[in-house]
């Protein structure tokens, strides 16, 4: 059997690449807005959405579950916003509260579905750690269309999003709508996360957004290289992870992708460390923040 002509394997690589590219591109802005953990909360919060969608329709159609996922993700975002506006709780507590409430409800629902003996068809527990084989060819085409739309949005508005993350107040004075742009980025994040959960799982999906850009950040501080390198890492991580997961039977895809990405980060860290050391030797240091 030729490894690269086998249709299931081809599908797997194609699927993870589409997901990896989208997540790492959207992740750049989640990172810049310091919302890495918000992404974590959203991906956990998607679980009850998927479960409710399944209970309500009794189908496993991807678009039905995606719809449930997006609604749950959106509700979680609103919940976090409202909590931080109306209480004295700090941001990290707000994230943890929403994450744990939604995820707990999701697990209760899944254990309820399992109790009724329906999980055999539903396979909802695949959403926890991800199973790339669960994705059909049509799904991948649909994801690819969505990915193109999201990438177009990012390329079109990246400057606004970038500057907004840096200094929102200035843009507000200049007449940019903070609310509208916030909503665009949040929606993009929710869609990218919802797209990835089948392959990566809700527990680790946020890492696919954040780790590529965290690695890229060690190599550059300019926005366009940051986006390019981050997407490159996303693809390498997705392909490498998918490949590794085929080496042994019954391996979940998500964790493998994360492990590969983490090794990329370690390499970046080493590069950064040594380049800083040589820089310090060659140029006399200008006083920062002095």
């Amino acid at each position: 059997m030729n490894y690269f002509t086998d249709p299931t394997i081809q599908r797997m690589f194609l699927g993870t690449i589409v997901i990896g590219v989208t997540a790492s591109a959207v992740g750049v802005f989640a990172f810049l807005r310091k919302k890495a953990l918000v992404g974590d909360a959203i991906s956990h919060a998607i679980l009850p959405g998927v479960a409710v969608a399944y209970i309500a329709t009794e189908t496993r159609e991807t678009w039905v579950l995606m719809l449930g996922a997006v609604i749950a993700g959106w509700l979680a975002t609103q919940f976090m916003d409202t909590l931080s506006r109306t209480t004295k709780l700090k941001a990290d507590a707000v994230v943890a509260i929403v994450l744990s409430i939604f995820f707990a409800i999701g697990l209760v629902l899944i254990s309820w579905i399992q109790g009724t003996g329906k999980d055999a068809q539903a396979g909802l527990s695949d959403f926890l750690f991800g199973k790339i084989a669960a994705i059909s060819t049509q799904d991948i085409y649909a994801f690819a269309v969505l990915a193109v739309c999201l990438l177009f949005l990012l390329l079109w508005k990246y400057k606004t999003f970038y500057f907004l993350a840096f200094n929102a107040e200035y843009l507000k004075v200049r007449g940019f709508s903070i609310r509208w742009n916030d909503m665009l980025i949040s929606t993009a994040s929710i869609l990218a996360i919802a797209m990835g959960i089948q392959a990566v799982g809700v527990v680790l999906m946020s890492a696919l957004l954040i780790i590529p850009v965290a690695g890229a950040r060690m190599l550059t501080f300019r926005i366009l290289p940051l986006m390019a390198i981050s997407v490159l890492f996303g693809v390498v991580g997705a392909v490498g992870g998918a490949f590794s997961s085929t080496l042994a039977p019954n391996m979940p895809t998500g964790p493998w992708i994360i492990v590969v990405l983490f090794f990329i980060v370690i390499v970046c860290l080493v590069i950064r460390y040594f380049s800083e050391r040589t820089k310090r030797k060659t140029i006399p240091k200008t006083q920062p923040n002095g």
Binding site: K157, K159, F166, R174, G175, F221, I223
Partner: peptide, 25 residues
Amino acid sequence: VDWDFPISVYDVVSMGRLNPKRWWQ
């Protein structure tokens, strides 16, 4: 201001030329 933010001096100054009315930045 977050001084660790990945942005260059040039990019900060270029914010002055943003125009909310323009579709393509």
